[in-house]
Each structure stands twice: as C-alpha cells, then as structure tokens.
Amino acid sequence: MTATELDPSPVAARFRDQVRADVQRLAEQGRALRVVGLISQEEGPAATYARYARRGFEDVGIGFELRRTTPAEAEAAVAAANTDRDVDGIFLYYPLSDRAGDRWLRELVDPRKDVEGMHSFWGRLLYENTRFVDPERTVRAILPCTPLAVLKLLEAAGVHSDRADAPLEGVTATVINRSEVVGRPLAAMLANDGARVHSLDLTGSLTFEPAVGRHAHDVRSSDIDRRAALAASDVVISAVPSRDFELVRAEELKEGAVCVDVAEIANFDASVRERARVVVPRVGPLTVAMAARNLVRLASARRRP
C-alpha cells in the first residue's frame, strides 16, 4: 500500500469561497471586516504563521493588521483591540509571553472577537458539547480553528460514518500531545463526534470516550501506551513541537490508518506512507480558512437585533 497525500490547500479553497461570499454579503450591508494579529517575534514559526494568515484573510476580503508588542505590553495591546470598534477579530501569535502569560492573554480576548475559539467561554461549550450559544439554536458556537481544520480534513479523507449526529462513530483515534491549544480540544471534538480517542502526552494517557448515547464525551485515566494505542487506531494525529520526539513509524500503525501531522516539524517517519491509507502532511492553510469562517460567524452574530 502506498498512501495518498491529502493536500489541505484545495480543501481550504472550498471554504474560502464560502467565506468570500459571506464577506461580500456583509460588505453590501456596509460592514467591512477587519482582524488584528498580535505578535512579539520578528522571526520563527509565529512570524511565518502571521504571513500566511495575512494572505489568507486578505484573499477573502478581510482586512488584516499585524501589531507588534512585547510581553510587558501584551495585556494593553489586547485591551486596545477589544475596545476598538473597527476590529472584528483578534488573533494571538504565540508565544507572546511565557506559557502562563499566554494562557492569561487568551482569557483577556473578548469572546465576541475570538476568531481562534480559545477563550474559556467557547471552551466550556466545547467540553460540554453545546453546539449553539442561544436556546433558539440560531447562533453556532465557535470552535478552535486548528482542531476544526483537522476534522474537516478527516472528512475530506473519507473518515466518517453514516450518522449525521455522530460522524466519527466507530472510529478509534490517537492524538499525540495534549496541549490546551490543539491536542486537548481536538480529542474532545473527535469524541463529541463519536470517536474513541487515546490522548498521549508526556504526563501520561487519557481516553476520551465518545459522546454517542449521551450529551457529552467522558474522559478517563488510561494505562494504554503508545504501541497499543497506535496499533488500534484508524486515525493518528500528532502535534509535538519538538525535534526530540520519536517519529511515528510504519510498523507502529494499523494497516490503512489516516495520519495527520499538525506539528511545525515532521512527526511522522517517511515509512508511514507504506502502511497508511492517507497522509496529511500539514494543516496550516485550512486553519486560516477556519479562522476566517469563525470571524464571519462572530461578526454576523453581533449584527443580530
């Protein structure tokens, strides 16, 4: 078996077309959308991501301004963007501070402008599997843009069941790295859609049991190790930002698995293409498209009477 490589760019293009039409609709109503990105680094992954984001937002007609700040000035920069009536969305490019400081900055972003979907307001809805903000179910909850991009790529790879309310029912997945930005919300989103998810991290293993038959997923401690988790998984997603990470190899995988690399550096050995069915080498283009989609939803909700 030789794996098919799934390029995220054509998938992202389809979503950008939809977003572009929505942006045009808002423009015809007199609303020009604008995002502010806050960054503290001149070079590195954050700066690269910001350049891609600018192109992605501007491609669909959304204005993008990158504001440089320092760790000491970051809180004030977030506050200024929150209160700026001409700013519809805020994007933070990490690290802006240290880990605790970045967590605090995420909480300072106005949830109504949080295009990344990382504020605890949105996190609570995610972990409770609440899909709408209002009782009338007219305003959809915002989901973290990178995990959401992964779900859309799995759909494009043909990973789905016949149940609309549980599109990943029967799927077993492993997510390597339980970060608050990608790994943990992604595991929850997969489980909310019906998958059983083994979450592996340096601190140990957890299993996210699917939300099929109940309102939300359940999380339990697990003693499953990497070998057993990978061997059982139809989907393997890795997001480890370290060159010391032991790459996932072909012999560890279940035959026909779908492998998604979310990390800035490769997490999968080239040999996985001999055993996997689909390999997704990057997610970035679709992450930006999901952020733009989130922005349109936030802006549209704020315009409701």
Rank of each mutant, 00 (worst) to 15 (best):
residue 32 A to P: 08
residue 199 S to I: 06
residue 61 G to I: 09
residue 216 A to T: 12
residue 121 F to E: 10
residue 201 D to K: 02
residue 273 R to W: 00
residue 64 F to P: 03
residue 208 F to I: 07
residue 288 V to N: 02
residue 236 V to A: 08
residue 28 E to T: 14
residue 97 S to A: 15
residue 194 G to E: 06
residue 274 E to I: 00
residue 67 R to I: 13
residue 26 L to Q: 14
residue 289 A to W: 09
residue 61 G to F: 06
residue 136 E to Q: 15
residue 175 V to L: 06
residue 179 S to P: 09
residue 98 D to H: 12
residue 229 A to P: 09
residue 222 S to P: 05
residue 223 D to E: 08
residue 34 R to K: 15
residue 278 V to E: 01
residue 26 L to S: 10
residue 68 R to H: 15
residue 52 Y to W: 06
residue 164 A to D: 12
residue 44 G to Y: 05
residue 123 G to A: 10
residue 15 F to N: 03
residue 208 F to S: 07
residue 83 T to N: 13
residue 15 F to A: 05
residue 303 R to V: 00
residue 78 V to G: 11
residue 58 E to N: 01
residue 142 I to R: 04
residue 227 R to Q: 14
residue 81 A to C: 12
residue 161 S to E: 10
residue 50 A to D: 13
residue 169 E to V: 11
residue 50 A to N: 10
residue 3 A to E: 09
residue 36 V to S: 02
residue 298 L to S: 04
residue 251 E to R: 10
residue 144 P to L: 05
residue 69 T to Y: 09
residue 135 P to F: 01
residue 283 V to H: 01
residue 81 A to L: 13
residue 180 E to Y: 11
residue 231 A to T: 06
residue 112 R to A: 15
residue 20 R to Q: 07
residue 150 V to S: 00
residue 143 L to I: 07
residue 224 I to M: 13
residue 40 S to L: 01
residue 74 A to E: 02
residue 51 R to Q: 14
